[in-house]
Design a protein around this nucleic acid. Structure first.
Lengths: 221, 221, 221, 221
DNA sequence: AATGAATGAGCATTCATTCAT
DNA sequence: TATGAATGAATGCTCATTCAT
């Protein structure tokens, strides 16, 4: 726990901070971190202006709280689906799909994460980027297990993670034409098809919605 | 000319605005749009604080001026290389490479464009996004000429444009490990290899392409 | 009892108020009245923040409580030594020495008294100044008993009382060079030597004493 | 020049700072440093709230500006009278009288100096105390020249400087009974009479208004 | 045209005090 | 009686914009 609170009761802290984060997301989404006022966040969080400072010691902390919550939530969603899958190919696809789905589900937060990161205080940023790096590492490991030595797993993992937010960062141009599912499917195919082919060598893949050799049950549906 | 100036001399306007834009980029890069002060921009631009308002009528205008300049410069760089190339596939590759190179060259501006767009006033944003859409359209056309009906050229064009800034938006994690050239080569190969293979006719895929920009059939359903 | 308490038990009130005063002195000493927070006082007093308001009805009251306690304590120390001494000159010296010693002993409180008096609410201030005047009156009486009509006993008494805190108010410059004892001895000698000589009758001076507190003849005019 | 200003014109700075100091004294006098608001100071100084920050970079600076101005003004007044006087005894009396007169003339500022010094930022305080020490040093030198080896010139100098503000720090009790002149005369006599006697050995002094051997012309009258 | 001094609206933060438990 | 969570008024400071020169 890096952020200091005046109040001691852990449960109360968690509860109020959740309110604050939720209020903050609403306001950040509308105007970004800088134009967001603590007053407005407090009001959205249904908390007194002064009370915010019982759970947080500065506006900066609110941004950090948002990021910490976002990164953790996101990562949990990514990991939750594939933990019991043994086959590396399957794990890769399930995980990547989970990633893209998480990105679309948390689209406002993803957008904020990409646009507001620069405003996080240095110390806090390190913590966040370390956590974000863990997601990359997660993909890198899976890619390494897949064992294609024609690729650079770290670079590839980064590219997967980046491409996973395509639908969010370009939503201003994609939204009018495509829905979440279409974008998710496009990304999964586009990013994994060729990879899988090379990895699997001669093996032919169906490039339909679930192009991976064995059927994968979408945990969410 | 959307931005109003108090001064009449067109050449003077252009010259001073260039100074202002350059000053603004320096400051925006350091602190982002909101924390940038007009004072500091003026000082970097080597112009009097009051004089800025002879060429621009608000801080918002400065942001717009930056964006307009950025989008135009960027697009020019992208188009400049391939205009005499006839072969569609070659044009695609040359253009995409030009795009990625431009992104890396203008990395600070690209970063700003992705993180500060939300602060551009509605009216101005429309203009900028229209110009940005022209870049996508540029790729869409080339992709259409390539004539692979297994892809959705609009979606693919968007993805190319997005993936082109991979090296910039992820530089915090890539910089320690890769230089510009490595990232450029990775992207060109990664994004075009499979496409080129299919284009070259060695493969036919069953994914249905869709005429842009009309309704899309969700591949999964 | 001017300060109101919500609690009824007199003994409890006294006990808790003592805690509050002690806590307050610690905090006032560190940061002065205004920068002292009730929170910090409560914490130093080992009392709940809310509970303070059971024994005091405002922060102002705390300052008053401090002053009342200070003035009383101080006066008691001054009077305690000389009450059985008959010879006026001896009483003067013993009392003055007691005063200076008390000042040095309570130096932090003396300092606070001189610097924070302006923040005491009007009504309270009157009470405090009346008590403080009693100390002056104490000296005035002794001086009158000494019976030197060449001095103005009231003015002289005031000057004694003032000079008695020399070591405290100037401690920033004296501390590195002198210890308490040296300052006490200096003051007692410096302030009483000449007086004692005149008192002992070896000198008669022509400066006219004036009956206190009526009109004063300006010696110069 | 330690305090930073945004504005460059030295004359303007001096002029505005004078306004600010004067406004500040009015407000400090009324409520002390902490309860004084920059808003109120600005209003008293007949300057815009924001403009204050063109000449000063924080409220702390205003306090420092006050102190610097006060110490300098005070010292100048003390030194101005006696610079052409050669005889050490004469210089001592003239200087001490000048000191007391300055203290009474600047009584509000003296009061502020004694009560608000603790609120000056550490760095600034050093500067102020150094200047204040110069006044003590000034007296110490004169006392050394007088050449009485029965006194400690530094301690005596300090006591003179301290006693010089008697009329100010005790004005709440003295004001109803004595005017400035009476207090000044009392101090000059009280503090210098015995000293002069010891210093001069056997020489008898008239203890009238101008007890010093040779007549001294009060520069002011 | 060019300048920078002047301004006050707007915001983050603090803290005395209240009140439900 | 005792507690500390909750509150919002109050305040230092910033900065876009104006305007006199």
């Amino acid at each position: 726990m890096q952020v200091k609170a005046r109040v001691k009761d852990k449960n109360l802290i968690d509860e109020k901070r959740r309110q604050i984060i939720e209020g903050a997301i609403k306001v950040f989404k509308k105007k970004g971190y800088h134009k967001a006022t603590v007053r407005e966040i407090a009001s959205e969080a249904k908390i007194g202006l002064g009370s915010i400072y019982d759970y947080v010691s500065s506006k900066d902390d609110i941004l950090y709280l948002f990021f910490e919550n976002y990164v953790t939530t996101f990562f949990d969603k990514v990991r939750s689906r594939a933990f019991q899958i043994v086959d590396p190919y399957q794990r890769l696809e399930v995980t990547f799909r989970a990633f893209v789905e998480a990105a679309m589900e948390l689209e406002d937060q993803v957008m904020l994460a990409y646009t507001q990161a620069r405003y996080v205080k240095k110390n806090y940023l390190k913590v966040i980027l370390r956590k974000e790096s863990e997601v990359v590492e997660h993909f890198r490991k899976i890619l390494s297990e897949v064992g294609d030595d024609s690729i650079d797993p770290f670079l590839e993992a980064n590219f997967l993670v980046f491409s996973g937010v395509f639908g969010v960062l370009r939503r201003w141009i994609l939204k009018p034409h495509y829905d979440h599912r279409e974008i998710i499917d496009f990304l999964v195919q586009r990013q994994l098809r060729e990879l899988s082919e090379r990895i699997k060598g001669r093996k032919k893949l169906s490039v339909r919605a679930r192009p991976w050799p064995s059927g994968i049950t979408n945990v969410e549906s």
